[in-house]
């Protein structure tokens, strides 16, 4: 959450950048997150598309049973987003064929370092927890769905079929399990260690070691290291990320920055208008009075 100190800090650094005339956005540098925050690493070269992560996620989060069983591979015929995966779900695995190679990619919340959804929420129901997961407080949510509008990864979903308790649905990185010292359900269920759970800083090193260790096997890029200002969920891949429907237009600027300029205008506007308008009013008001004075003199 943006508290006053953060707000000031970011404001001052923005000012400093402005004065220095440097247009370069150094997103990750002015983010003072918890250095030990947790994250996940997905290695798409390892994933075999067994969907055990989906099943484990479903069970861990007490979600309703799916219409097609988790062993059914016919679901791969379409590209599923978590929320349209035939029933409420927090994650989905999709199959791609790239140059004759079959590649699987797991989709879920990216747990951004500076999430768009968090800066969108008017009641601070979405929060980047100290531990790393982006969590949601159902006691505060008003159901405005601005988080869904804001998310560049099209992740959060809303329960449109509930009139009295519509919930925001997305992966919470098994926040409860993490608090109890457990590993998130999907990482625990993965039989081939395609999902690794750990400190984000360690995961970046792991990812780079794998990429550098086998440069022919991997694309030289860790998706999420800088995307959207850095995400908690990281990916490495053997085929270009664009082939796996990764949004390549998210840039490296953190999303809250996009509205910061506008929000910093608020105080200026609030101070300027009364002064200006008061002045205008007095100008014509005085002119009016002078005129009536002169009229009075004539009589």
């Amino acid at each position: 959450m943006m508290n006053r100190r953060n707000f000031l800090k970011i404001g001052v650094s923005a000012l400093a950048f402005g004065i220095a005339g440097s247009g370069k956005a150094l997103a990750t540098e002015d983010f003072a997150g918890n250095p030990d925050r947790l994250g996940m690493l997905s290695d798409t070269t390892r994933c075999i598309g067994c969907r055990r992560c989906e099943a484990a996620c479903n069970k861990a989060n007490n979600l309703p049973p799916p219409k097609k069983s988790f062993e059914d591979t016919s679901v791969f015929e379409e590209k599923r987003r978590p929320y349209v995966a035939d029933v409420q779900s927090y994650t989905a695995v999709n199959r791609y064929t790239v140059d004759g190679k079959t590649v699987y990619r797991k989709v879920q919340c990216m747990h951004c370092d500076e999430p768009a959804c968090v800066s969108a929420c008017p009641v601070a129901a979405m929060k980047k927890s100290k531990e790393g997961p982006v969590v949601w407080d159902e006691k505060l949510c008003i159901g405005c769905r601005y988080c869904i509008v804001a998310c560049p990864f099209y992740v959060p979903a809303f329960d449109y079929s509930s009139a009295f308790d519509p919930r925001i649905q997305k992966c919470f990185m098994c926040y409860k399990r993490i608090s109890e010292g457990l590993v998130p359900a999907c990482a625990e269920a993965c039989p081939v260690e395609a999902i690794t759970f750990g400190k984000r800083s360690d995961l970046i090193k792991t990812a780079k070691l794998r990429v550098w260790g086998e440069p022919d096997k991997y694309i030289d890029h860790v998706f999420g290291e800088e995307e959207a200002g850095g995400t908690g969920w990281l990916y490495i891949s053997g085929v270009p990320f664009s082939e796996l429907d990764f949004p390549m237009d998210v840039g490296t600027t953190s999303y809250p920055k996009l509205t910061k300029d506008f929000l910093s205008m608020v105080n200026i506007t609030l101070v300027s208008w009364p002064a200006l308008l008061g002045g205008f009013y007095l100008m014509h008001h005085k002119a009016h009075n002078e005129k009536s004075d002169k009229e009075g003199d004539k009589q």
């Binding site: 959450m1 943006m2 508290n3 707000f7 968090v118 800066s119 969108a120 929420c121 008017p122 009641v123 601070a124 129901a125 505060l140 405005c144 601005y146 809250p256 509205t259 506008f262 929000l263």
Partner: peptide, 10 residues
């Protein structure tokens, strides 16, 4: 109840 001060919607 709760202030999302970084939000334009707020």
């Amino acid at each position: 109840i709760s202030f999302g001060t970084a939000s334009i919607m707020f």
